[in-house]
Amino acid sequence: MLNVRPDSLSILLVDDNEADRMLAEEAFDLLPAKVWVNLCATGDQALAWLRDPGNPLPNVIVLDVNMPGMSGLDVLRAIREDPVLRPLPVVMLTTSDQPGDIQQAYELVVSSYWVKQADFAGFVRQIEDFVGFWQHARFHKGRP
C-alpha cells in the first residue's frame, strides 16, 4: 500500500496482530493528512522489505515489541546495525509497558516508546498526535 509522495508522510508499521494492523490502518485512514502506510506482519518481512532497494525507505518505522520469532526489539537492533537503515526513526507502539522493554528500546536508540491506548478513540488520538509530530520532522534523504 506504500506510495510515497514528497508531500506525504510514509510509515512502515510492523505488528503481528492482524486486528491491531487493521485498527491502525483504520486510524490512519481517518486522518485528513496524507499518510502512506505499508504493513508488515513479522520482523523478518519488515527487514526484507526495508532492505529491498526497489522499495523507498519510509520516513518512520513503527514497531510492536511483542511479536513471535523476531521481536520488535530484535528488529530495532537489526535496523541500528545496518548502515543504510540506521538513520531511520523508529517508534515503538506496543501494549508492553514493562520497564525492561522500555529501557532496552532506548538502549537500542529508539526514537520514542508509546504504549497503545486500550480504547479505539484513545488510539486514534495517539495516531493523530504521532502524525502531527512527524509531519513537522525533517528526514534523512533515503538510500545512498
Rank of each mutant, 00 (worst) to 15 (best):
Q45D: 15
N55K: 06
D20E: 14
E107D: 15
R51M: 08
G122W: 11
V131A: 14
L39R: 02
V75N: 01
P53H: 11
T42P: 02
L39A: 03
D64T: 01
A24W: 02
S111A: 13
S8C: 09
D97M: 02
E25M: 11
A33L: 04
F120L: 15
A46V: 03
F28H: 01
E107V: 00
S112G: 14
W134T: 09
R86G: 00
S71R: 11
V60T: 03
R143H: 14
K116C: 08
E18A: 14
L31M: 08
L30R: 15
E107A: 11
L57D: 03
L57P: 00
I127F: 02
Q98P: 00
L23Q: 07
R143G: 09
M1V: 09
V60M: 11
S10H: 05
M92E: 10
V110S: 15
R125S: 09
A19S: 14
A137Y: 10
M1L: 10
L73F: 08
V60N: 02
S111C: 06
S111T: 15
P87E: 04
L13P: 00
P58Q: 08
L76K: 07
F28D: 02
R143K: 13
L108T: 08
A105T: 03
Q117G: 01
V37I: 11
V131D: 11
D52V: 03
S96C: 09
H136G: 12
P58M: 03
R80F: 05
G122I: 09
L23M: 13
V131K: 07
D82K: 10
L31S: 06
G142D: 08
P53G: 07
G100V: 05
A46E: 02
L50N: 06
V62A: 05
G100S: 12
N3S: 11
L73H: 05
L12T: 02
D16P: 00
M70H: 07
L85Y: 11
H140P: 00
I79M: 07
V84H: 09
R5F: 08
V110R: 00
D44C: 02
W134A: 00
L13V: 04
L31A: 04
M92I: 15
H136E: 12
Q45S: 13
A78I: 00
G132M: 01
R138F: 04
H136V: 02
Q117Y: 06
Y113A: 04
K141G: 13
G54A: 15
S111W: 10
F139V: 09
V65A: 05
G72K: 06
K116P: 05
I127K: 01
A121C: 02
D101G: 09
L93A: 13
D29P: 00
I79A: 12
L63F: 01
N59Q: 14
L73G: 00
R138I: 07
D129S: 13
T42L: 04
Q117A: 15
R5D: 05
V84S: 04
L57S: 00
V115W: 06
M22K: 10
L73Y: 05
L50F: 01
D82V: 08
D20S: 14
N38S: 06
E26L: 12
